[in-house]
């Protein structure tokens, strides 16, 4: 099995979106905790100690929601204390914590998704749905770097002409606007030239081929199969109602049962798939290096 990153984009998308969908869809603390931990583990595995700011935001924001929920939410019976003649209940705090957990887990999954799915991969997926849109999207990505370079060039030329007074706020803004205006003129004309060139080369007359080739191999088929099977198991478990928590007016946890444990296990396996893929690859690599 290849590392998760190198899998077919369709398989990667299926895993992340289905896992995230279940996270959004169920309000069950155990499953949410599993989801959050797996997403976090995968994120840390890939990026190490970087992005401390993201960790703080992804954990802090939900915590804030948890603490604030009882202020709007007056359900619940166990009163912790009273603010402004409004009860701050334990049940509402717990409910807030669960929704916060859900938010954090989804934030991590989406972060993983946008780290994994480069625009090239997204283009590959989009192509099936709409080739025209995929082309516009792809060209916009290319234009982004192109315009940045061009902007730098214009700026240098303007400086060379002595049209900038350095360190003067008003002149900086005026100069920036002038550079932007020049860039717009150039970009539009350049776009028309590109379009003419595309038309001359016969754009739209035949089927378009792609630069990158993503193959859908046996490993991808196994991954997609596992994702679908585990998703089906988890959804069946949730639908059975054995996992339903009651939050208001009193918190009642569902009794522990075999379906409960099975569902949690299936979901944990589903959420762990990326970590397993990466882990296996890392292990193989380690063994190969050891044998040298």
């Amino acid at each position: 099995m290849r590392a998760f990153d190198a899998m077919n984009p369709a398989a990667v998308t299926a895993q992340i979106l289905l896992t995230a969908c279940i996270t959004v869809f169920c309000l069950e603390p155990v499953l949410l905790l599993i989801s959050l931990l797996c997403a976090m583990a995968f994120f840390i595995m890939r990026s190490g100690r970087k992005h401390i700011g993201f960790h703080i935001a992804a954990i802090g924001l939900p915590l804030l929601f948890a603490l604030l929920n009882p202020l709007w939410n007056q359900h619940g019976t166990t009163v912790l204390f009273v603010i402004n003649q409004r009860a701050y209940t334990e049940e509402a705090l717990f409910y807030g914590a669960v929704t916060g957990l859900r938010l954090a887990a989804v934030l991590y999954w989406f972060r993983n998704f946008s780290d994994l799915m480069t625009s090239e991969k997204l283009f590959y997926l989009f192509r099936g749905f709409s080739p025209k849109l995929a082309l516009i999207f792809c060209m916009a990505v290319r234009n982004l770097t192109l315009f940045r370079e061009q902007m730098h060039r214009i700026q240098t030329a303007q400086r060379g002409l002595g049209l900038y007074r350095e360190g003067h706020l008003l002149d900086d803004v005026r100069g920036g606007l002038r550079v932007f205006s020049i860039l717009v003129t150039w970009a539009l004309e350049n776009g028309i030239i590109t379009a003419n060139s595309m038309a001359a080369r016969g754009y739209g007359t035949g089927k378009r081929s792609s630069f990158t080739y993503f193959r859908f191999g046996k490993a991808d088929a196994i991954l997609v199969g596992a994702v679908l099977l585990l998703t089906a198991l988890t959804v069946c478990g949730i639908m059975s109602g054995r996992l339903d928590w009651q939050y208001y007016p009193q918190r009642i946890a569902p009794a522990f049962s075999l379906p409960y444990a099975g569902t949690a296990a299936a979901y944990a396996l589903l959420a762990l798939l990326p970590v397993l893929c990466e882990g296996k690859e890392a292990l193989t690599w380690h063994c190969l290096r050891q044998s040298i």
Binding site: I136, M139, A140, N143, L146, F147, L188, G191, M198
Partner: peptide, 12 residues
């Protein structure tokens, strides 16, 4: 084609 390219230019 031209309008399509202009859309991508404006997006960028």
């Amino acid at each position: 084609t031209r309008r399509m390219i202009l859309v991508s230019v404006m997006t960028a």
